[in-house]
Amino acid sequence: MRGSRRARAAVTRGRVLSLRTRGTVRSVLIGTAVALVLWEVAARILAATTAQGDRVLPSLTKVATDGFLGLGHYYKGGLGVSVATAGGDGSALASTLALVENAGVTLMRVGVGLVLAIALGIVLGLLVAAVRPVRLSVSGVSEVLRMLPALAMAPLFTIWFGATSLASVVFVVFSVAFIVLLATSNAVANLRPEVTEYPRTLGVRGVRLWTRVVLPAILPEIRGPLVFGGIVAWASVLASEMYGLQEGLGYMLNDTLRFSIIERMVVVAVVFSALALLTMKLLGALVDAVTRWRP
């Protein structure tokens, strides 16, 4: 009896066989809840069994209270509220302002860097695909550069441009533009011949062939790399803000880690991840919006 029911279930499942890898809202919620519970259990065990457990793996309550409220320390009075009014360490207002202010700075660096990187990557990628000498000279170099651990290059940009937003932005452009460039030139190489041959027989030629035919045609294929570029932009900005910059989520993260204040670090990390995820979703939605035509 039980066996036959299981068999029937298998058949039903087989009929609607789907290779779904993205979570539903429910599965994400459940996964998050499970992770939080596991974290809390581990924190309690560590706290009970070791002397310093709560400092290594703070409980969720400690993260939500000490961790969040401690961030007021990072508020420098940039949003029209004076530092004194905000209250500093231990004030919810100051903590919120600190997060908003620093997240804003980082967001700006990511945003500017990402836009420049995508524009530059697509233009260079099309050039690489279109002009044979450029292709031959760039492809070898880019293959080598791609193998570099990009994140380890972050200090170099601080040396070149100082501990400034410019260093961050240029570094984001450096790491993301490569991804977009390679994706673009590969996507052009993968285009079916008739996609460009047909417009050529209509008399479309020159730059127009690239901007009005090739570019829209490759958009669906470079969607994945663009979204990936969004994640890399956040990782890059984080790496760059760790070197000498005095503002931004990366700076906060680095500072909390320097003093081993894990509960504060966790709060910053959560904000960071949320913004990175949002960027990813936004990029994906943006590409989907301009490729509504795709079959």
């Binding site: 008739e194 027989t201 209509l202 490729t291 035509w293």
Partner: peptide, 12 residues
């Protein structure tokens, strides 16, 4: 002018 065997018209 040419009409192709494949679906060559721009999908966008």
């Amino acid at each position: 002018g040419m009409v192709f065997q494949q679906d060559a018209i721009p999908q966008w």
